[in-house]
């Protein structure tokens, strides 16, 4: 994995004090498993000392090493946000000293809707975005990275041809918010539409927008790759991890099926990322949950790519 921001790297005394309340010191001997692929996930580890190897189990194969987690990294952070099963196993490669954070404690801290909560949430989102970027890069068969291009404004779009508000409760991005928050968040963006085949983002460009698909679908295609890395349907966000990491888009983003979108850009996006309003907290919450869904997809793609490469190596 590449460089990730230390998830709780903050000078805020308030944040550190609150973290002290939820972090449980623990240690794991070299060779032991911190968790096993498929187990229910109940929390995350902040690694203080030692290293941890992330492994993917494939039947009939030795576990495939996916990544190494080092001091300062957060391990298993999807569990902080939702109940799910572990998508990988984690094994200590050296004696580990860590702080375990239980999901329930974290969520109690998070939903205080205080500035400290927002900073924590944003850090988790950035850490997840970094994992996601690495996982996507490991999945694609594209070679190299696209050339950088200048920052671009969102292209011209048509008007949205329907009222999306009655559907917000079933769209994943908005579904975890209450109806009032969902409606308010929709109002922060600009509704638009685009036709099949149109390009939303070109690989190598830095974008200043995040979109949420309201209807239709968007596909993400690494330049030179033989397969799309993602297909994003209703209720999924587009352009999140490059924005949070302040990186150029690694892939082309195109409209797969004629789509209605809500676009967050310019001053509205700046406000939502600043963390000073209820809407911004809800926006970051929704972005983080969307990143976790993307990470699930990326991990499934990684399993597929790992198996394919393993079989190809056998064939040679």
């Amino acid at each position: 994995m590449g460089d990730r921001p230390h998830v709780f790297d903050t000078q805020s005394a308030a944040v550190l004090q609150e973290l002290d309340l939820v972090a449980q010191p623990c240690s794991v001997a070299a060779g032991d498993l911190l968790f096993v692929q498929g187990d229910p996930a109940d929390g995350a580890w902040l690694i203080d000392e030692g290293t941890v190897q992330l492994e993917m189990d494939i039947p009939g194969r030795a576990p495939t090493i996916i990544a190494t987690v080092r001091p300062g990294d957060l391990l298993g952070e999807p569990a902080l946000m939702r109940t799910a099963n572990r998508s990988l196993s984690a094994r200590a490669t050296h004696d580990v000293v860590a702080q375990f954070i239980d999901r329930r404690d974290f969520q109690a801290l998070l939903y205080g809707l205080r500035p400290a909560s927002f900073r924590l949430l944003k850090r988790v989102a950035q850490s997840t975005a970094a994992y996601l970027a690495d996982a996507l890069a490991m999945t694609t068969d594209a070679q190299g990275r696209p050339p950088d291009c200048p920052p671009t404004e969102a292209g011209p779009r048509g008007p949205c041809d329907f009222d999306p508000r009655p559907f917000l409760g079933v769209l994943p991005f908005f579904a975890d918010l209450g109806p009032r928050d969902a409606d308010a968040l929709l109002g922060e963006g600009t509704l638009c539409s685009a036709h099949r085949g149109e390009t939303l983002v070109s690989a190598g460009c830095k974008t200043r927008s995040v979109w949420v698909v309201l209807r239709g679908a968007v596909e993400v295609m690494p330049p030179g790759a033989s397969q799309r890395s993602s297909l994003l349907g209703p209720g999924h966000a587009v352009g999140v991890h490059p924005l949070l990491l302040d990186q150029p888009a690694p892939s082309h983003v195109r409209i797969r099926e004629s789509a209605a979108l809500v676009e967050y850009t310019g001053d509205a996006l700046h406000r939502l990322l600043a963390g000073e309003t209820r809407a911004s907290f809800k926006f970051m919450d929704a972005l983080t949950r969307d990143l976790l869904r993307s990470l699930d997809r990326a991990n499934r793609g990684l399993a597929r790519a790992t198996l394919s490469r393993s079989l190809a190596a056998d064939a040679e």
């Binding site: 209807r215 239709g216 297909l231 349907g233 209703p234």
Partner: peptide
Amino acid sequence: FDYGRYRLDDPSRLGQSGMNY
């Protein structure tokens, strides 16, 4: 076909195939 283009006539009766692949 036309993934993601769910029916607009009745939000309460949206089928899963309209929302999920």
